[in-house]
Design a protein around this nucleic acid. Structure first.
Lengths: 349, 349
DNA sequence: TAGGCTCTTGGAATCAGTTCCACTGGAATC
DNA sequence: GATTCCAGTGGAACTGATTCCAAGAGCCTA
């Protein structure tokens, strides 16, 4: 059993043919006689032959490999959807993915990129776990790169991010559609952070209101912090108002979850009394709530797919400036949005 | 700019030395004159040289690479912790991880394993997303393999899984410790599935009761299905009993979450009126609940680390039978467990 | 001054593949 | 019957590294 792995030469010898012929069989070239092909294949089978990818790589220069690098501490459950999307597209094209979780300092990341390049990756996906500006290792310029859920200020890399504004707009439109006019919005982060996820969703909210002719009311907006506690507190705060909102748009599902508890405490039911839309589609939360939460899905899988697709198809070094793609955040209807209660319908047309 | 990547020969020529010397510099061998080393390094720097890993691999036979394969449809958020743990250990040893999400049919998995082997992986981690028996691709026998969160009936692979029994026992002990005697248990799956996660946690529950001299009461046990709805319903069901439990042990955090809603609806507070312990430590849920949920953590990162560690250190093909390792599920205290209410303390010693 | 050390060094051989060029022998064409 | 043509084939050259052996340069010793 301890015989060493057979090489293409061993196969050639055993089958009584030349190495060139074995190579042709391996690569399914047409110019091989059927009888020869059968013989070579049976010898391979018998000797348990496996080609060595590295040798092919070194000669052809093709590694059939992409690097997938996540920045920062990634305690979010999003990473996996991203990887899945990227990997699905990669498999279609017979490529593999080398994943590195580069949380840690810049040196770790530099090192990770260097490793990937030495392994001959044909491109690198650099993924952040939330939409923000990033500083990337310089070496990324040496290889085709796509940034996912992030971007550089100089826009010197192709980038794909969620369309936060549109997501915010469509979430709000959904609520307007049901007759709601007093719609609260709790941002998913302090606006002072400047994060697109926080700014964009609020902006979309404003756009939708404006388009519907509903005046923007600052009293309905709160700066949340994304977590459940924040949702719980702001929900109570908003409920305490003289004329409480009939609908709530939360910048994260976690905040919506906190708000559910607040609603339950004061005896309000969703969506009978109040309607709720979340953001992120963390389905382990959104599905688990009662009623399940209608929310805007972050297109993680789609971004992963887009990134690999771009690496596969775009010519590198030519298309200046690199594309800055925004993908829509589709609404996922689950049942937390209902018609505005009759008593609150107000001046509806 | 379009000059082709320099090879070790180009460096040798440019530096006026032999390829052997360049190789020595690259590998930081001691037997190189300082002056030579400096010269070679500066030439490398100037030409922007990067070694080609594939060439090294082919010559040395070492790929410094592990495969990481996930079975089934992995919509769980656990995958990432597993990958992180494995990757952290791999990086310590200067290895990289090739991740494949092999959801899909057996053929896809067979193909994935074949690909990994052709890429020369030094070992494969085959990870399931919940603790159960698996049928793995035959080719895994060709390469050192560790199963994570799963096992084969024949126990013919090294395997690392959570210690479900101990987890169930410690969860229950925590509640007994606070004086609770009427402790409900909702299993995380139908017992008919035979899943260790469902059977084991219940068994641990029974062990703890027995050890504490508390008689097992079948009326306090329910077969849940893991999701929030199931927790919600069984909580209400248990609350309707003549003498409702003072404490609840749920087989998943999601069920605990559903139960929180039930408790809120009937005006009970956690942990003042009822105590709750969950399982899984899905922190996006456990942290988000009010109060945050005390739960048993599935040791995903630890299992990932153990798997790689085993591949790195264990001699392959010798240690029969392969180790079947169980890792503890540490309790994560968050605040949902409190003293049994005085009125319910009953016949406490 | 020859012999024996150690320290450096060059370069051929090697790893497991692909690529390309030259060379078959038989069928088709003239 | 001579000339093309071509599918099928063998094998040398090559990819970019490592490894190892032989050999030169100093230095020390006998």
């Amino acid at each position: 059993m301890a015989v060493k792995k057979p090489s293409i030469h061993d196969i050639a010898k055993a089958a009584g043919v030349g190495v060139g012929t074995v190579s042709r069989v391996l690569n399914e070239r047409p110019n091989v006689a059927e009888a020869t092909r059968v013989k070579v294949e049976s010898v391979m089978e018998q000797l348990g032959y496996r080609p060595t990818f590295a040798a092919r790589h070194i000669r052809t220069g093709r590694s059939q490999l992409f690097g997938f690098l996540t920045d920062q501490v990634t305690t979010t459950p999003f990473a996996h959807d991203l990887i899945k999307g990227a990997q699905a597209r990669a498999r279609q094209a017979d490529r593999m993915l080398m994943v590195i979780d580069a949380d840690g300092d810049d040196r770790v990341r530099e090192q990770a990129v260097a490793n990937l390049i030495e392994r001959g990756v044909e491109g690198i996906v650099y993924a952040a776990m939330f939409h923000h500006e990033v500083h990337v290792p310089k070496a990324l310029h040496e290889v085709p790169t796509v940034l996912v859920d992030c971007f550089t200020l100089k826009r010197d890399f192709a980038s794909v991010v969620p369309d936060e504004v549109r997501g915010g707009r469509e979430a709000t439109e959904r609520l307007l559609e049901e007759g709601h006019r007093r719609i609260a919005m709790v941002t998913n982060d302090a606006l002072s952070t400047g994060y697109p996820a926080a700014m964009g969703r609020l902006e979309g909210y404003k756009e939708a209101l404006a388009e519907a002719g509903v005046p923007f009311d600052e009293a309905l907006v709160r700066e949340g912090s994304g977590n459940a506690d924040s949702g719980y507190r702001w929900a109570h705060d908003l409920l305490d108002a003289d004329d409480p909102p009939t609908a709530y748009f939360f910048g994260t599902d976690r905040m919506a979850m906190g708000a559910y508890f607040a609603f339950t405490e004061v005896g309000l039911t969703v969506p009978g009394d109040v309607s709720v839309v979340g953001f992120d589609d963390q389905h382990y939360i959104a599905d688990a709530l009662r009623p399940a939460l209608t929310t805007m899905a972050l297109p993680h899988a789609a971004m992963g797919r887009w990134a690999i697709d771009h690496l596969l198809t775009a010519p590198w070094g030519e298309d200046r400036p690199p594309p800055q793609r925004r993908l829509p955040c589709p609404i996922v209807e689950r049942g937390s949005v209902g018609r505005v209660p009759a008593s609150d319908a107000g001046e509806e047309p």
